[in-house]
Nucleic acid binder design. Structure first.
Lengths: 341, 341
DNA sequence: TACGCCATCCAAAGCGCTTTGAAAGGCGAG
DNA sequence: CTCGCCTTTCAAAGCGCTTTGGATGGCGTA
């Protein structure tokens, strides 16, 4: 059933039917009701492509996933972030689309999305410290919003980010207050912006407490269970192991815990652990008492806010970019305790 | 830049330009090259919606995620499965779209996707034992393919599934061979088809070995870390705890391991564990030696195969449905050992 | 020279919708 | 009764592409 058929059936013009369904005022209430009922009854839905062609909008938000970041961090948070974003999009009538891009083809991919007109805007994830995608998108004029920030980019743009620096400063201070002095940082890859900020928070807290930053206590890798495990094992096997470890992700933290237990140590007693927790719905940090002491911030919530910002900026293209800095909450669980004497 | 402009610039008709770009034979090679170069140079991409309108195809594959299954199992495998499917789709020129659906609105959602013409086909995940979506999609004529099967549906349809029954039978036999007699099963929700099949495999192996099936050793819940943990704790606290546990997912298995270690037991020595491993790229089962003995089957690979099947069936609507049963591989890791005397 | 046949290219219709510009009808004011 | 003004409805153009059904011209053949 298409508009033409529906109009014929009702004995009205396509114009009137279209207007009735789209809530325009130039239609009498009686007619509108009649049209709506007929549409309902025939299960009529305007064809997306035709509507898009006519309006010039695709009502679609794109997520572009570079192949290289598929292992780095995207996957774990991916599901929840996207869920948050896509629910927000759906509420505003937007669909969600995915594009996976081979490394190096990013420019082509964005140009293609823009050229083909398949999306009205895109969401970027895990920006690097210097991320050329932002300048690129500005240049080609494709609306976008970033989950995270890119330190080297001074232009303003839409973003939502967790305050990684303050979260990790706070976590480090918490450990220092518990008497820890040898605190390790198991970070994500430090080309990633969030990783740099977390490190900054960590080092600034150490420095403020007069503790020398020890490079041998810091490592940065992809955030997987396996890598968390071997980084921790290396730390524990060193001559002077840390008494506390700060971890950048729940996934890594699972590996950290495994290494600790394999070494016959007890987490929260022999060694303390704080992790960042994206509050993933399928990897909850315990039910009532958290397993890990953690800096927690819902990535799902971030997705939702970011989608709103992007859609608003599509609706009013001339308005200035918006952004939001979310503060992570420090939840105290069983993985932290006083430094061993 | 659109087709009209490009055609004007070249001094050709839109027809010729379109044909040149789409590889039709009625264009001389010289002209084709000239057109291709101009298109390249002006960065021309045919507008998706216009093309879709004209051809009647959207070149889009949809994934529909019911809200209720968002916690159940979808999330962990979600990322990898979708990655596999979307790469395969992209190779065939298809984009990937997501729709999240509130419970009970599934019928409306599929009808809407169909009516709006926004997708050429959809992929279904985690079917239940009796899943009404399959009949619905057949009824409304929207091409689809299922990741998994639905036992109660006798009609034929496109699917890809792991042989859950044989995988879990094999795993159970492996434990029996190691001398285990009290083997527990921590399963996913048993309305889900895969969970039923895994249970069938488990019970059939027990029966074949003349071991009575003990309902107190079987539980079925959402497959999260937290639920794996408390189900294991309950098992271990019972009067006659199992000597081995079969687990339906890596995520649950992480919780299982935590409970085992909290109880002061050693996995692989005091108690054996076998899990199903979807070979998730961000939650690898160890690097060289697997952490867990596992029935392994790449969900990413399944996604890829399923997408191919769906796209083929869209291309040739009259061809009979296709399906593929993947055999899981039993990888032996450190989590299993002889039953304690 | 005349004819027919390819190879190559084109004009125009059509996909299903929105939206502009105009017509038709109803009604009160003059 | 006529005029002008709303309100309600409509015909038709246009969005950017594909595709049908020609047109055109070059070339070999008779």
């Amino acid at each position: 059933m298409n508009l033409k058929q529906l109009a014929e059936e009702l004995g009205l013009s396509q114009t009137t039917v279209s207007r009735a369904l789209n809530g325009y005022p130039e239609v009498s209430e009686g007619t509108r009701r009649r049209v709506q009922e007929a549409a309902e009854q025939h299960n009529y839905r305007p064809n997306t492509r035709a509507k898009g062609l006519a309006t010039g909008r695709s009502m679609m938000i794109g997520h572009v996933i570079p192949a290289s970041t598929q292992h780095e961090m995207v996957n774990p948070v991916f599901g929840d972030f996207v869920a948050g974003a896509s629910i927000a999009c759906a509420n505003r009538g937007y669909d969600t689309m995915f594009t996976r891009v081979d490394d190096g083809d990013e420019e082509a991919a964005y140009r293609s999305l823009m050229g083909k007109g398949s999306v009205d805007g895109v969401i970027l994830q895990v920006p690097k410290i210097h991320d050329s995608r932002i300048a690129l998108l500005k240049r080609i004029g494709l609306p976008f919003a970033v989950h995270g920030r890119s330190s080297d980019v001074t232009d303003s743009y839409n973003w939502v980010d967790v305050n990684n620096t303050s979260a990790f400063r706070r976590a480090t201070e918490f450990l220092i207050d518990l008497g820890h002095r040898r605190i390790a940082l198991i970070n994500g890859l430090e080309i990633m912006d969030f990783a740099k900020r977390r490190r900054d928070g960590y080092t600034s807290a150490l420095e403020a407490a007069g503790i020398a930053v020890d490079p041998s206590l810091m490592s940065s890798e992809e955030m997987t269970e396996v890598s968390g495990h071997h980084q921790t094992r290396d730390l524990l096997e060193s001559a002077t192991p840390p008494t506390a470890i700060l971890v950048a992700s729940m996934i890594s933290a699972l590996g950290v815990r495994r290494a600790i237990e394999e070494a016959g140590l007890k987490m929260g007693k022999d060694i303390s652990v704080i992790t960042h927790d994206d509050d993933l719905s399928y990897l909850k940090n315990g039910q009532d008492v958290p397993i890990f002491t953690a800096t927690r911030s819902s990535v799902r919530n971030a997705g939702s806010i970011l989608a709103e910002i992007l859609i608003d900026s599509i609706a009013t293209p001339l308005s200035p970019p918006r952004h939001k800095l979310l503060e992570a909450e420090l939840v105290v669980g069983r993985s932290t305790g006083p430094a061993p004497a």
